[in-house]
Each structure stands twice: as C-alpha cells, then as structure tokens.
Design a binder for these strands. Structure first.
Length: 584
RNA sequence: GCCCCUGUAGCUCAGUUGGACAGAGCGGCUGCCUUCUAAGCAGCGGGUCGCAGGUUCGAGUCCUGCCGGGGGCGCCA
C-alpha cells in the first residue's frame, strides 16, 4: 500500500463515498486532485459535483455529507466544504513531519515497487553502422535510458536493447566500394568513423550514377546474406569500427548495460516471419512485393497502404526486421516493449504493432508502445545542422557542453581568486553532460526540442546545474554535521514550525506519486518539474532556516530535511541518468 | 489530398483521466554576500490560452470547422 498523500487520500475518499452514498453509486474520477492554489488546501475532492446529477442533489449538500463521512484526522486537518462542492484537504504538519522522518530512513524515498512487475524491453539509441551518431540519436538514448532507469526502480526486469542499424542493402555498395579503393582484405587495419563515412558517401554517389557499380553492390548484398566469408568479414570490420567509436559516446553519456542486438540478429528469422504471415492468410502480392494491408492506413493517393514484408527482388526491409524483433521479444517473455524512436516513425510502428496483433504474436497481455519524440532543432528553430549543412555529431555536441561547463568553473575560480579545482575535468563532464540530458528530459517528449547551450548551461532556473548545485550545497552542510555517510543512528524527530520547512516537506513527500506517474506516461518532464520544485523550496528553506547554527533538537530535524532533500535529488537525477557531485 | 503532432507572457516552455482567480524559467527593473557554496534568495512588471462554434454545473484541457507551424504518406532504414 503506497503511503503517498495522494494515494492515501484517494483511498479515504473512496471509502467515504461508499459509506455516505452506498456501494452501488458510480464514483466519478478523479477522487482527489492536488490543488493549484494553496488557499484551497493541498488536495481537493470534486466528486460531489460529479455525483450531483446522478443523485439529484445539490453539490454542496453532497460535499458536506462526504466531508462528514471522511476519516482523515490522522493525516489532514478537518475537511473544508466550499462553494460549488469541493471538499478541500490540508495535510497535517504532524503527519508530514512523521512521513519525512520515515523517508530519511528509506532509500527508495517512498517510491513503492510496481504491484505487477514484468519484463520490460526498452529499445533505444539505435545508431547506424558506418555513420557517426548524431543528435537524432541523442534524444532516443537519453529518453530511453531514463525510461529504463524508472522501470528498474519499480522492480521490473528491464532489458536495454540497442537495435543497431547493422544490416541492409547499404552494406552492399559500401563493401563493393571498399574493394575499389584498396580496402579488400584489410580487416586488420584501423580506420576512423569519419573515414568510413566518407567512403559511404562516395559509395552512395557511385550507386546513384554507375550501373555497373550498382550491379556489383547488389551482388555483394546477396553474398552478405548468403554468408560469403570475405564479404562477411568486411561487414564485421565495419560494424566493429562503428561500435567502437559509438562506445566513446556511451561512455561520455554514462550509458551502461545497453545490449547490442542489431538488425542482423533477426536475419535468420525473416523467412519464417513471412512464411507464417502467408500461412495466416495475411499476405497479398502486389507489384511483386509481399504485402500485409492494414485497415485504416492509406497512401498519398488514398489507396490502402501495405506493410511490405518482402520486396519484389526477394529482399527484406525494416518492416520485416521490426516484426521479427517484436515477435522474438514477445516469445522471450516481454510484458512490455517500448520503442524510443522519433515521431516520424509513428505510422510505421502503428502498422508493425497492428500486423503483429493480426498474426497473434502479441497476446493481449503484452503491451507494445512507441515512445515518439520530436526533432532536435537549432536555435533558429530549424533542424540542427553544422555550418556546412551536415548533421551535428553527437561527440561534438557533448564536447562543446563539457567545454563550456569547464570554462565556467575556471572563470568562477578566477573571479573568487581561488585556484582552479583539481577535479575540474570531472566537474565539467558531469555538469556539461547533465545539462544536455536535463535540457532534453525537462521538455515534453513529443514536442520538437530547441537545443541551446546558453539555456541548458545558464546555471539558473530549471536546469541540471541548478539542481546539482543545490545538491552540492546540501552535501556541504551534511559533511559539516558529520551526516555525509548517512544518519547518525535512528531518524531524528522532525518538526515543521516554519512555513519553509512545511513547504519543503510537502514536496519531499510526493516523490513516489511523481515517479509512478512518469512510469506510466513516460513523460520525464514531470519528474524534472518535481525536482526543480524540491530544489527551489529547499533554497527558500536554506535562506530562512539556519541548520548548523540551530540548537538541538531543531538542528537534527533540519538536518533530516537536508538529508531527505539530497537523497531525493540524487535519486531523481539518477533516474534521469544524471550524476551528482559532492562539491562543485 | 490523407494521417499524426502542434499553436499558452517579449523568448523557451509547464499545465495530471475536464475542476476554483492559467504557472515556471529566461530576459528587463529593484534589493540582499564579515553568517551552512550569491551557480542563491526576496520583490516588481507582463497572457482575449491561434480563431469561431458546441458539449458540461465547470473547458487551456473534450467535439466540430477554419487559420498557422512541424512530421509522415508502398518496395531506404
């Protein structure tokens, strides 16, 4: 049983409705909502207004009956019935104080495990072989990693899968081109990804212009698919080089446990996938291609739009691969499969999910979700590009953020006449990368996201540096008090006499609600807002309530508030994949 | 042409399954560093929630239409 105020009040109001109006009334949702205006208390129940019509009574009267039946004296002030028919609830300081004391000894900060843990596959990042990761992969990686973190905290069996683009017709031309420029049989040599990208561009150009080359490229695809050793080893060389370079990005981002299971993984299953679809009577041959038509999807001419599962030339495409991957994941026991892929693919995923359901590969209990996200835009509101028009490489973007953070730390030290900290590189990395991640995650996932170094590193407002700074400040106090390694024994009694203490406690107590909400809607910006509010409320507390200078037992009570705040920030930022520092 | 997303303060954006007088941050202006990190805090200004209808006790939120922005639309992934 969750013990967040929202959950508790929901249960109490539910019980009160049953006792006041009988079990058979249909209870209008929501039972309780947080208020927007503190004058209305902390939470309010609008159910009386929802019941007014069904029961043929005035809302105000029903609200009064509800309030009379409501048993909340242990956690809230007496309910207040107001105007149209709201029942307002204000949390009792004593309850809040006790709850904060409990959180001080709770590593989960009141985040209860999921009631029905399942296997969750999170498919994210998905870079392409022979291409440097660019900003498009940034959001997928950052968002996907956070989704996985949240699911993990709730006790799900989480699998982080990197569906790398390591297969396809493009390898035919690339390998054919390698032959011509002297790369044949030189798998031992090293090459930068930039070099490979140049080769890729050149291959592309030739493929478009040269018939003979096109023929050889196609031949190479056939050889690759049939497992020809020489072709295969060239392919493996490309994959290995690409992934080695990507690894640097993952290291910088602090992304771990991401298991590569690329498109090539599913090659052996494709023929069977198509055969099974045919056996199920779902396949229609159209212009030589094997198609599955899905109701409700049309093309630009208004004609039915198919998912093409086998091309006219016999080859497979990513529709087939994604079907095979989804089927495989369901077979391996996934209860939920989450795809973190840009919004441009949403029709594709809708169709893949639909076909998988038609084929019976996705039982009703298995949930497939496309977590769509918007584009990364430059400051002008256009797609982010370099001056030369290329897409921005992820390493360059992250490096710039880290460099800017470093410059700030150095400049601040100079202003204060202090030496530059010895760990300036570490601080710069944590702050710079954290800023990039937070700027993304604090934005609504579906909207296009305007990337601005100035804003994400502005160090003021709703940014990672602000939160990291708040954390470091708290840690400084805890260190001073000897609390840095944990509580000195049992959680101390907490008192909340100052308004700033009370406000802080109210924020600290709802982390469980917030995390569970984010686990459901996958909108990390709600978690960001919560952390920002916690930090902001903490800073107000910090200004008005001395901690170390206060006499006992007030000192310990305030230290407990500090400890819970620090732990909340660390937990929350951790869920976002953002590190914290004891000193900044 | 069809489908999806989107339009909220000068700028960037929040706004929980419809709930009370729409909120932040940035930028602008004014104060606060012999006191636990001023990357902070306190305060002042600023919005016909794209437009028009509709549903409802109640609409930024739901429905319809229109206007503007983004993305997608059969053998690339």
């Amino acid at each position: 049983m969750a013990r967040t105020p929202h959950d508790l009040l929901r249960a109490r109001v539910g019980a009160a409705v049953a006792s006041a109006f009988g079990d058979d009334v249909e209870v209008p949702e929501p039972l309780v909502v947080p208020t927007t205006d503190p004058r209305h208390g902390d939470y309010t129940s609008p159910v009386a207004m929802g019941l007014a019509r069904a029961l043929g009574r005035a809302p105000h009267e029903l609200a009064q009956r509800l309030a009379d039946a409501l048993e909340v004296s242990d956690l809230a002030e007496p309910p207040e019935v107001v105007r149209p028919g709201f029942v307002n609830l204000r949390l009792h300081p004593r309850w809040l104080a006790r709850r904060v004391g409990e959180l001080a000894g709770d590593g989960r900060l009141g985040v209860e495990p999921a009631t029905a843990p399942t296997r969750v596959v999170v498919d994210y990042s998905g870079p392409n072989v022979a291409k440097a990761m660019h900003v498009g992969h940034l959001r997928s990686t950052i968002i996907g990693d956070s989704v996985a973190n949240v699911a993990e905290l709730l006790g799900h069996d989480v699998e982080r899968v990197n569906h790398v683009g390591d297969w396809g017709t493009q390898f035919g031309m690339l390998i054919a081109h390698l032959d011509d420029v002297g790369y044949r049989g030189v798998e031992g040599r090293s090459a930068s990804l930039a070099e490979i990208e140049d080769l890729y561009r050149a291959a592309n150009a030739r493929f478009a212009a040269d018939d003979a080359f096109r023929q050889r490229a196609r031949q190479r695809v056939v050889e690759l698919q049939s497992g020809d050793p020489e072709t295969h080893s060239a392919w493996r060389w490309l994959v290995a080089l690409s992934m080695a370079e990507n690894q640097a990005v993952y290291d910088l981002l602090g992304v771990h446990d991401l298991v590569v299971r690329g498109e090539s993984t599913y090659q052996p299953m494709l023929a069977e996938v198509v055969a099974d679809l045919e056996a199920a009577g779902l396949v229609v041959v159209d212009d030589g291609a094997k198609c599955v038509f899905v109701e409700g999807f049309t093309n630009a001419e208004g004609e039915p739009l198919p998912l093409i599962v086998q091309k006219a030339d016999g080859g497979y495409n990513y529709d087939t691969t994604d079907l095979a991957a989804l089927r495989s994941r369901a077979e391996l026991g996934a209860g939920r499969v989450v795809y973190v892929v840009d919004a441009g693919q949403s029709q594709h995923f809708q169709m893949v999910f639909a076909v998988a359901r038609m084929a019976g590969w996705l039982p009703d209990g298995v949930e497939a979700t496309h977590l769509a996200f918007g584009l990364v835009l430059g400051e002008g509101g256009r797609r982010l590009r370099t001056r030369s028009g290329d897409s921005v490489r992820l390493v360059d973007l992250l490096d710039e953020a880290v460099q800017r953070a470093r410059r700030f730390v150095v400049e601040r030290a100079e202003e204060r006449g202090e030496p530059v900290p010895a760990d300036v590189d570490e601080v710069a990395r944590v702050v710079g990368v954290g800023a990039v991640k937070y700027a993304d995650l604090s934005q609504h996932r579906q909207s296009n996201y305007v990337l601005s170094f100035d804003r994400m590193l502005s160090l003021k407002g709703n940014t990672a540096p602000y939160l990291q700074y708040a954390y470091a400040r708290i840690r400084s106090i805890l260190r001073e008090a000897g609390w840095a390694d944990g509580l000195p024994g049992e959680p101390p009694a907490v008192t909340l006499d100052e308004p700033q203490e009370l406000e802080l406690a109210k924020r600290l107590v709802v982390t469980g609600d917030v995390v569970h909400r984010v686990a459901e809607d996958y909108l990390s910006n709600h978690l960001c807002t919560h952390l920002f509010e916690v930090a902001q409320t903490y800073h107000q507390f910090y200004e008005h309530c001395p901690v170390l200078r206060s006499p006992e037992p007030l000192r310990s009570s305030r230290l407990a508030l500090c400890a819970v705040t620090a732990a909340t920030l660390r937990l929350g930022l951790g869920l976002l994949g953002i590190e914290v520092l004891d000193r900044i």
